[in-house]
Simulated assay, not measured.
Amino acid sequence: MTTHAVRLEAADAAVTVVSTERAVTDWSARYFGPWWKAAGVPPESVCAGPLVTAEVDPDRYADAALEVTRAPHTSTTYAKAQLLLAHDQAAGVIRGVCPEEALAYRSEPGVANLTILGRDPGPVATATARLAREVMRGTLLRDGWSVLHASAVVQDGRVILTFGKKGAGKTTAALAMAHRHGLGLLANDRVFVRPNDGGGVDVLPWPSAAAIGLGLLDALGWFDIARERLTGGEALHPTQDQRVTEALLAGLCEPLWEDGKELKAQVFPDQFVRWFGLPLATGGKATVLVFPRIEAGAAPALQERSRSLSDHDFMSGKTEDRYPDVFELARVDGGGTAESRQEVARRLAALPHHCVVLGHDVAANADFLAKITESD
């Protein structure tokens, strides 16, 4: 049986995904792509962790699930599904099973190895990418990196960071600048940051599917491209609500809402490049901070209000409840150590800050943002 391996690299960290199921390693290669320099490697070259091994094997899954349920275990919620956990303190092993998704896990935190077993390729591939990212996050956090809740674009190594709560306009600002002015997209929602020896802050991408509202897709000129791709048989990320897919296929670009939350298209990282011609960036140095606010009918303008970073701008444990560190892959706060966060915040505070109001005209927003950040 042939084994496949994909290595992910970011800064000095590396994680390898191994599976006999080609669909699993292909999914990770696609998901992390150029952001984390995902590349196939000879399986025989993989001799040490961090390592994520994933197999589609119904019998092994059943045995692993039974092992968890027969042992003393607890129940929690992970990725919106029930997860049963059993700890073997003597062996240094954490076992888990998610009955809803038919997935079983075996984590060895001490040697940074994680095994995933399942019945079907789709859930196994999705879980493998999710947890490979968590292994990488743990490696980077322990090496002094932190995680900021921010979008980011890069021009000639200069990173423009955009902050704000959901709906503030982080995605709108980043995609507008990248699309209009050819900047590299570094991140849609969060980034890794670390103080460097030169007194600045280095920035790395956090690969993820990007949530883009139907109205923004249309404003960017991407709605018809996405519709054509879907009509041709391609698909967006499987977490996308079916109602969004149906609206795209029907040519309906009005925003969709449910309980006050907008339902959005979920774009794979590689689709930014293949579908929309948007380049992806792999890193840079923080140079300017933007704090946008979207207001219908507004012309882009600077605001007199001031804004500084706070603990809420870091992806700390309080904001990471969808993916708690149940397998002890990070073993530090999900946003980074307190020392790292404090130093990053101190250094970013010294950079230019721009509080802006933006309207719904993507081109006007992009040109305005490019003008106010070009000299920083």
Rank of each mutant, 00 (worst) to 15 (best):
L185P: 00
E44D: 14
A13E: 13
E108K: 09
L289P: 00
R130E: 14
K37R: 14
E67C: 02
L348W: 03
G334N: 14
V191H: 01
I116Q: 08
V357N: 04
R274M: 10
F32M: 06
T69G: 02
P205L: 03
K166G: 15
V332P: 04
D376T: 13
T53Y: 08
A370K: 01
V124L: 03
L84F: 15
A62S: 14
K371D: 14
R243T: 10
V362A: 03
S310H: 11
K166N: 06
G122Q: 11
Y323W: 14
Y105N: 12
V135Q: 15
I225L: 14
V357M: 08
R347K: 10
V244C: 05
G169Y: 03
P300V: 00
G138S: 05
G336Q: 07
L186E: 06
S316V: 14
I94V: 15
G182C: 05
D197G: 09
V147D: 07
V193F: 00
G92N: 10
Q303M: 14
A219Q: 15
A286Q: 05
T20G: 12
I94G: 08
I94L: 15
V326Q: 08
T239C: 05
A5W: 00
A299G: 11
R307H: 12
L217Y: 08
Y61P: 02
R133C: 13
A10Y: 02
A168G: 04
V203H: 00
I116S: 09
L148H: 00
P324A: 14
D143L: 12
A298G: 02
T126Q: 13
I94M: 13
L217G: 10
D224C: 04
D63M: 01
A211V: 00
V15K: 03
D361H: 03
N196H: 12
H87F: 11
G167D: 00
V159M: 02
D325A: 01
G92I: 12
F268N: 06
V93R: 04
